[in-house]
């Protein structure tokens, strides 16, 4: 493999980005941090990129990538948002209905939705994530075929729905019926696996902020998913990320959509509670 020259890494201060236009963002962060500390962050208010000791992946990005994520035109994930918007209004299945037929204007009906997933589904007696919820609506309400996991259509709709919650703090429920699945997710997170015999916690808790070869390890938060990842040159879901991480430690990945990954998704979402939804985030 050929080596390519890299820009020198500049470690950003936690919660702040070094940008000449970042003064307002810095003030917002300070205000948000102050409000969070005092428990005054109102529901629906924009959330800062760092909450207590939890850091969004945004704080590990280079300035160029932070600008790309914030660009309301050039963020490549917005291509999927637009595709999702088109699908939202497109009728499918024998009933001739679309998402819009029941849910109307997504900006109103889907606001805050992504902050609560994965959630416990009483119908199936286990957790359900956003992708699976979209497919369930398709199967049960529209009598349409579910989209395959990680298909362009499902990614587009998940990103479009997630986009409606941009800036809102992640706030999943881990008590009541969700509790045993949350514990299963936590057990997965600390379980060693693969030829390299590593658990998620080793990189993302123990070595977060330190280097893995040329890369700086993040905390592995999921508040930006589905993300536009430069490594993939496309948009990807949390399950694709989990499968990638598992493969990276030379462990057999679970199939996308597996219960194990949905449980892990709930634990990881809880781990990033309070961080802002950044869908679609840009990551390395």
């Amino acid at each position: 493999m050929q080596l390519r020259p890299r820009l020198p890494w500049r470690e950003p201060a936690p919660g702040r980005r070094r940008s000449s236009t970042g003064i307002l963002a810095g003030l917002l962060v300070l205000l948000g941090a102050a409000c969070t500390g005092a428990g005054l962050l109102l529901a629906g208010e924009l959330s800062p990129y760092t909450v207590e000791d939890r850091r969004s992946g945004y704080t590990y990005l280079s300035e160029e990538n932070q600008r790309l994520q914030d660009d309301d035109f050039a963020n490549p994930g917005l291509l999927w948002v637009e595709h999702g918007r088109a699908l939202w209004h497109q009728a499918d299945g024998p009933t001739g209905t679309s998402c819009a037929s029941c849910h109307g204007d997504a900006a109103a009906s889907m606001r805050g939705v992504r902050t609560r997933y994965p959630r416990f589904d009483p119908q199936r007696g286990k957790l359900i994530n956003l992708e699976q919820q979209i497919n369930r609506c398709r199967e049960q309400r529209m009598q349409a075929l579910p989209y395959p996991y990680e298909s362009e259509a499902l990614l587009a709709l998940t990103t479009f729905v997630g986009w409606q919650s941009r800036g809102l703090p992640v706030h999943v429920s881990i008590d009541g019926p969700a509790q045993p699945f949350f514990e299963a997710g936590r057990a997965f997170y600390i379980q060693r696996r693969g030829q390299l015999d590593l658990a998620c916690t080793h990189c993302h808790d123990q070595y977060a902020g330190q280097r893995l070869r040329g890369d700086v390890i993040s905390q592995g938060q999921s508040n930006g998913f589905p993300i536009y990842r430069h490594t993939w040159q496309t948009l990807g879901s949390t399950h694709r990320m989990f499968a990638w991480c598992n493969t990276s430690v030379r462990a057999e990945p679970y199939p996308l959509g597996a219960d194990e990954y949905v449980n892990l998704e709930l634990f990881v979402a809880w781990r990033g509670r309070g961080l802002p939804v950044e869908t679609p985030a840009v990551r390395r």
């Binding site: 035109f73 917005l78 291509l79 999927w80 637009e82 595709h83 088109a86 362009e152 587009a156």
Partner: peptide
């Protein structure tokens, strides 16, 4: 996929 995005 979706339409190309253009800002004019």
């Amino acid at each position: 996929m979706a339409e190309p995005r253009v800002r004019v």
